[in-house]
């Protein structure tokens, strides 16, 4: 009888171990994990500039003695005639001085930088004489605190104005003077 009891205990112990051993085997399953990342990019509309009007110093009358100059401001203020320079326009729109204007378009609410030459030379069509245009300046309609920086509005648009100062040396003969310059806009 005693021997039967020991065998019974052994069976009991084996049974206990077998029962509690099962979860340890189940824990050997192959679990996995995952995570979510992302890729991102900001794709920006290309900035574009289109010429709307030329910078014109209009018709100028100078007495031929001493240097004269005409300043056309980018901010739209009236032209300023210095020394012997006078306006030679009697009111027709085609001979009135005015600043140049450019339409700028691109990504809404982004700043852009404008590059223009600081000076160019206007050449007379008949005489070939050169007159310097100096102090070329730019100003965006939307305004910006920094020089040479514009800002596109909510629709991604701005108008850019360019002004400068034409110097007319004494003894300059009558002519039509013309110069070309490039305006380069880039996102700031």
């Amino acid at each position: 009888m005693t021997g039967t009891g020991r065998i019974g205990h052994l069976r009991l112990a084996l049974l206990v171990c077998a029962i509690f051993g099962l979860p340890a085997t189940a824990a050997e399953a192959q679990p996995g994990g995952q995570a979510a990342g992302r890729a991102e990019a900001e794709v920006v509309v290309p900035i574009n500039v289109v010429q709307l009007s030329d910078l014109s110093f209009g018709s100028i009358a100078a007495n031929g003695f001493g240097e004269a100059s005409v300043k056309v401001a980018a901010n739209g203020s009236p032209p300023r005639y210095v020394h012997t320079a006078r306006s030679g326009c009697s009111g027709q729109s085609e001979c009135l001085p005015h600043r140049a204007s450019f339409g700028v378009s691109g990504e809404a609410n982004r700043d852009y930088r404008v590059a223009v030459p600081s000076a160019v030379m206007a050449v007379g069509a008949r005489t070939g004489v050169g007159l310097p245009v100096v102090d070329i300046e730019v100003r965006g309609q939307n305004g910006s605190s920094a020089i040479g920086v514009g800002r596109l509005d909510n629709a991604g648009r701005d108008t850019l104005f360019v002004g400068g100062t034409l110097r007319v040396p004494g003894g300059t003969r009558p002519d039509i003077f013309r110069a070309e310059f490039s305006v380069i806009v880039t996102y700031d």
């Binding site: 051993g21 994990g33 979510a36 990342g37 991102e40 794709v43 900035i47 996102y187």
Partner: peptide, 28 residues
């Protein structure tokens, strides 16, 4: 055995995101 089984967690693998794939800002 039960206590040991309760304290010993099953093996696992985890994935953690440390940073996004950024292509930056560009114009096209």
């Amino acid at each position: 055995l039960v206590a040991d089984a309760a304290m010993a967690k099953p093996q696992e693998v985890r994935v953690r995101t440390q940073g996004k794939l950024s292509f930056g800002t560009f114009m096209v």
